[in-house]
Deep mutational scan, measured.
Amino acid sequence: MDEEYDVIVLGTGLTECILSGIMSVNGKKVLHMDRNPYYGGESSSITPLEELYKRFQLLEGPPESMGRGRDWNVDLIPKFLMANGQLVKMLLYTEVTRYLDFKVVEGSFVYKGGKIYKVPSTETEALASNLMGMFEKRRFRKFLVFVANFDENDPKTFEGVDPQTTSMRDVYRKFDLGQDVIDFTGHALALYRTDDYLDQPCLETVNRIKLYSESLARYGKSPYLYPLYGLGELPQGFARLSAIYGGTYMLNKPVDDIIMENGKVVGVKSEGEVARCKQLICDPSYIPDRVRKAGQVIRIICILSHPIKNTNDANSCQIIIPQNQVNRKSDIYVCMISYAHNVAAQGKYIAIASTTVETTDPEKEVEPALELLEPIDQKFVAISDLYEPIDDGCESQVFCSCSYDATTHFETTCNDIKDIYKRMAGTAFDFENMKRKQNDVFGEAEQ
């Protein structure tokens, strides 16, 4: 370990593993360490099931009705991949897709007046949907046509809207959309967690709705994908990429100290040895004095023996409960997957309800979601602090990732990755940087 590296990475969460992969592909010498004996950090999948019970201090362990412990891979952080989103792009560019198998999530649902409705995925579904009345549908269709044709580089498509100054509230007004449709559009399509976006320039919202539609167009059922064997497969896929390009991995490796000289990182000390480096990437748990708390998320993992009611017996789905429907500031989400994804025993389902904490009784906040899941065989409640770095790391060369937020997709995580890359490399992130180099010394032969 007593060696000189360009970059040392602490923690094998998804953000850290993707950055480690990119740095290795770009010719950097990388050492990647984790104090845990497993990959994934906060974003790991726990197996066998006995391990999950232990982690949540349920000492009696799983009953026999849960089947074989080894058949379970339970995500600690519930997220899906947008089919046309940035993480899929990263997987394709790096060819990490060859280590993973994905399934399309069967449906996306939205909560309205105590019931759940399928988010329409085709024009026919939209016309048949009970989510809105006849005239509302016509106006909504006009709005969707506007979004589909919108091109930020072609003012002819703006229809009198200025993407940089017109607020989204004004765009909704222009198409005369009612409150329910606005809730549905902002939260189930643009996937905002709160209503803060309404008074911001509309460009980002329009682009988010386009991303949803384009992702949906790829597979038809929903815009989301999920990897077989759980999300823990993602960091491992990128760790393989890093290793192929010469990255060194050490799990179960305690970090005793991060060594600084004149305010700059110069190395990491572990078990009496020092590895030197020019730059350091880590998750917040490794540098508690360089991060601040930015809120909390509650996630309740529920094991069920039945599909969720009114989802047409889907073996995977997402449910969004827009905040307006339950008098909150932030949406509540449910991600459900099952034995069909090799993450649970035969006939079992895993539904994870999550939201940003707003009160001193977080469990009560998630109740509307839990009511949709009854009866629940077993619950595991996790309340996590969200951390963000206190500075950009440019001076110390210590670059810290943000905690995983309450969103049900990876777009915010990818933004964090691109942002850290830019601060480390001094140049904007470009997907081309992730391409495997042809015929290089570490390149794998085609399968």
Rank of each mutant, 00 (worst) to 15 (best):
C400S: 11
L49R: 04
G267I: 04
V161G: 04
E106Y: 09
P389H: 00
D361N: 09
F442P: 10
V145Y: 05
C394E: 02
H409R: 05
Y249D: 01
T427S: 05
R218V: 15
S242E: 01
D391C: 14
D6H: 01
K28E: 06
V7D: 01
R98F: 13
L304W: 05
K418M: 04
V161D: 03
E432S: 12
H341T: 07
E271A: 08
N149I: 06
L59W: 01
V297Y: 05
G237C: 09
D2K: 04
R299T: 12
Q447P: 10
L59F: 10
I352L: 01
V266T: 15
L131T: 08
I281F: 04
S222G: 08
A445F: 11
P322L: 02
G67A: 15
K278G: 15
T12I: 01
F143Y: 03
M168L: 00
V357I: 02
R68Q: 07
L211V: 02
V441F: 11
H187N: 00
F158V: 06
H341S: 08
L59V: 04
V171H: 06
D71H: 15
E136Q: 14
N36L: 13
N26W: 08
K329L: 15
E4F: 13
N207P: 04
T412S: 01
M168Q: 01
K118S: 03
D71I: 07
E432H: 03
G133C: 07
E233D: 09
R276T: 15
T412V: 08
K29R: 09
S401L: 03
S403H: 12
K118Q: 09
N327A: 14
Q86D: 15
E432Q: 03
I376N: 00
A239D: 03
V181D: 02
M23L: 12
E50W: 10
D154H: 05
A314D: 04
T94L: 12
I116F: 05
G21F: 11
I209C: 04
K28P: 08
Y117G: 13
H32S: 05
D392A: 05
S20R: 00
G347T: 02
E159G: 10
T360R: 03
I350R: 04
D257V: 05
E395V: 13
A243Y: 15
M66Q: 08
K364G: 12
Y212C: 09
A126S: 06
D2S: 03
T360P: 11
T94P: 03
P163A: 09
Q279W: 14
G272E: 11
L189T: 12
D405H: 05
M260I: 10
C335G: 14
V266I: 15
K29Q: 00
D34E: 01
P78F: 13
W72S: 02
G230R: 03
V366G: 04
P227V: 05
L144S: 00
F109S: 03
G178C: 09
V343W: 15
R218T: 15
G40M: 01
K264Y: 14
A239G: 01
A344S: 04
P288L: 08
Y229R: 15
Y224D: 00
T166V: 03
M33V: 11
Q438E: 15
D195N: 11
E159R: 02
N252P: 15
A83N: 13
I258F: 09
I258V: 11
R141I: 09
L373S: 02
N207G: 15
Y5R: 06
P201I: 13
N252L: 10
G69Y: 08
